[in-house]
Amino acid sequence: MLDPSGPVPAAEHRVSVDERGSFAFASCSCGWFAPARRSRDRARRDAAEHLSEHLSEYLGDHPGDHPADHPAGQRS
């Protein structure tokens, strides 16, 4: 069972990109939203970055935790 005080599982994040006139808006079922973008591609990237952040948080990944982040596999 998941800890209710912990991060929301990425599977529970449902992002969408909506268009209103010349602008696109990325938003998520968790309440997150990105600024209005004229570039639909940028709005989609905002949504993908949001999902990526939560997936990493949920799985326990943190910047610098991967061996590829360190030369010769050494950690600082």
Rank of each mutant, 00 (worst) to 15 (best):
S76C: 12
R14N: 11
E53F: 06
D65E: 12
V15Q: 01
G6L: 09
L2K: 06
F33M: 09
R44K: 13
A48C: 10
S16M: 07
P9A: 03
G60N: 02
E12H: 12
S76P: 15
D46C: 03
D65N: 12
S5Q: 12
R37T: 03
D41V: 14
A68L: 15
R38T: 06
Q74R: 12
G64V: 09
G73C: 07
R14G: 06
D65Q: 12
F33G: 06
L55V: 15
A11E: 14
E57L: 09
H50T: 01
A34F: 05
C28K: 01
V15R: 00
S27T: 09
Q74E: 07
G73S: 11
P35M: 13
H50F: 03
P7R: 00
D3Y: 06
R20L: 13
S52P: 07
E53D: 11
R42K: 11
F23S: 02
E12T: 10
A47H: 00
W32L: 02
R20M: 10
M1P: 05
H54W: 04
H13I: 14
V15S: 00
P67D: 04
H70G: 14
M1L: 13
A47E: 00
G73E: 06
M1R: 08
H50P: 01
A72F: 15
P4S: 05
P71W: 13
A24V: 00
G6W: 08
D61N: 15
G21E: 01
A24Q: 00
F33E: 02
Q74K: 09
S76W: 15
R37A: 03
A24P: 00
G31N: 14
G64P: 01
A11S: 13
Q74F: 07
A36N: 04
D3E: 05
S29W: 04
A43N: 01
A48Y: 14
L51P: 00
L55I: 13
D18N: 11
Y58N: 01
G73L: 06
A68W: 12
P4Q: 04
P7W: 05
A10N: 04
H13V: 09
A72K: 12
S27H: 11
D3V: 03
D61H: 15
G31D: 14
A26H: 00
Q74M: 07
A34W: 02
A26G: 04
A24E: 01
C28R: 00
M1Y: 09
Q74A: 08
E12V: 08
H54N: 07
W32A: 02
